[in-house]
């Protein structure tokens, strides 16, 4: 019998009580999605869209107000389930009196991993922390702490990587390295659940995206579906009166109306072509382009 999907979220809602007032804040509202084996799923949304809240519900850090979360069919609290997960929290931090090597050694013992010191040295080299193995974390920049958290997440060669804004504090080169490591892990067989609002990262590496806005799931689908779902057209026209050339990008439903109006206004249409779309266009179109 085949194994259940790494993440199954059904009708998940989470609300928080307001402090000093009646009522509650609805952080996540009735969302459902799956992350299947071997997928890289981008979880995108603006700040406060409910991404981190959903991830914390998936990991059992928050108790869902309604709905259900299962990981390979089990509970997030199950020890066997947790063994298979690697997690990078948003803005990770560690006790700064320790060094990365001490951290990795202790985490390995806690997780009963079989690696030795040279394995952890290689792991730190892989995430770009060579020569920093025994330096106190208090001397680390935000980006270096991100790298350490990636090393900790990868330490157990997890079957599922849950990454909450992992490239937030990284420079462009580090972001590229980060993406490469994620792709390598996926090649190894790990499923990846990547929350981010850096849409170019998601577009580059994800096979599927889930768009969240105002705590609600707006749309989801494979990257091909999402980018192909909304056809955009570029119209280049020239005014017969002024000779001024105008370029417009319009969604398919609006295309015919615009052509009619241009003809009516005695404007010559030079070119109509299918415009290339980015995930940003899809995101803006799906969310209405504002913070709900």
């Amino acid at each position: 019998m085949s194994e259940k999907p790494p993440i199954q979220v059904s009708n998940l809602s989470k609300h928080f009580a307001r402090k000093r007032s009646i009522g509650s804040i609805q952080a996540v509202s009735n969302i459902s999605f799956d992350v299947n084996q071997g997928e890289i799923v981008g979880f995108i949304g603006h700040n406060g869209a409910g991404k981190t809240t959903s991830i914390k519900c998936i990991l059992g850090l928050l108790k869902p107000s309604e709905g259900k979360v299962s990981l390979w069919g089990g509970q997030p609290a199950d020890a066997e389930v947790r063994k298979r997960i690697g997690y990078i929290p948003e803005n990770p931090d560690y006790d700064d009196s320790f060094s990365p090597m001490e951290y990795l050694t202790m985490f390995a013992s806690m997780r009963d991993l079989s690696g030795v010191e040279s394995d952890w040295m290689n792991l730190l080299a892989r995430v770009g922390l060579t020569k920093w193995e025994t330096t106190g974390i208090r001397q680390f920049s935000k980006g270096m702490r991100q790298r350490l958290s990636l090393a900790i997440a990868l330490q157990s060669t997890p079957d599922l990587l849950i990454l909450d804004e992992p490239t937030g504090g990284l420079d462009p080169i580090a972001r590229k390295e980060f993406r490469e490591i994620i792709l390598e892990e996926n090649k190894r067989g790990a499923s990846i659940f990547l929350s981010s609002h850096i849409l170019s990262d998601v577009e580059t590496i994800c096979s599927k995206a889930i768009i969240l806005s105002g705590g609600k799931l707006i749309t989801e689908g494979s990257m091909k579906e999402l980018l192909g779902e909304l056809h955009l057209y570029r119209i280049v026209s020239i005014s017969r009166k002024t000779g001024q050339e105008v370029e417009e990008i319009l969604p398919e439903p609006d295309l015919q109306t615009r052509i009619d109006s241009l003809r009516k206004d005695n404007v010559s249409i030079i070119k109509i072509e299918l415009a290339l779309k980015s995930l940003e266009d899809v995101f803006m179109a799906a969310t209405g382009g504002d913070h709900k």
């Binding site: 990991l59 059992g60 850090l61 609290a77 020890a79 947790r82 997960i85 690697g86 997690y87 990078i88 929290p89 803005n91 990770p92 931090d93 560690y94 006790d95 985490f107 806690m110 997780r111 958290s149 900790i152």
Partner: peptide
């Protein structure tokens, strides 16, 4: 406060 709790509670420790 320093968020050192999250990576601990989420994965290796209950």
């Amino acid at each position: 406060e320093t968020r050192t709790l999250m990576p601990l509670i989420a994965v290796p420790l209950s």
